[in-house]
């Protein structure tokens, strides 16, 4: 009897993301092979085998010129949905920068991730 195949674990679960080829905006791979602009709809891989399968699925649509640059990234699961880990993916998932220049009408509610600095802690 062949030994049971060892499935390599992941440090964190992962989802797969890419950019739309035409517009460049961020999208996430769903379990059915289509793409959503909402990370909450993304498929989640819990081990290497699932991750490889998701990337292979992404590769199929990448070849149809719908998306570009697919890759997997770490997520955490909250209420069964993927949420991004790390500032880069947090910013991508929001679809807009954390700051709002003149001309952008909607101000993201989460724009100030940093608290006001306490300058006195460094005064000499």
């Amino acid at each position: 009897m062949a030994p049971a195949k060892q499935i390599k674990p992941l440090k964190n679960p992962v989802s797969v993301t890419a950019n739309l080829l035409l517009k460049g905006s961020t999208v996430y791979l769903k379990a059915d092979g289509t793409w959503s602009d909402d990370i909450a709809n993304s498929a989640i891989a819990h081990d290497r085998e699932q991750e490889t399968a998701l990337l292979a699925l992404a590769n199929i649509t990448e070849k149809t010129q719908y998306v570009v640059g697919a890759y997997s990234f770490d997520v955490k699961i909250i209420d069964g949905k993927a949420t991004p880990l790390g500032m880069r993916e947090i910013i991508r998932a929001k679809g807009i920068p954390t700051i709002t220049p003149d001309g952008l009408t909607s101000k993201p509610e989460w724009q100030n991730q940093f608290t006001k600095s306490n300058a006195s802690s460094h005064k000499i």
Binding site: F114, S117, A119, S120, S121, H122, K123, I124
Partner: peptide, 18 residues
């Protein structure tokens, strides 16, 4: 950190002024 950097710049400018 992002929370500390403004304080650090304040310190640097205070060293210079003093």
């Amino acid at each position: 950190s992002g929370d500390e950097i403004v304080g650090a710049i304040e310190t640097i400018t205070n060293v210079y002024l003093a």
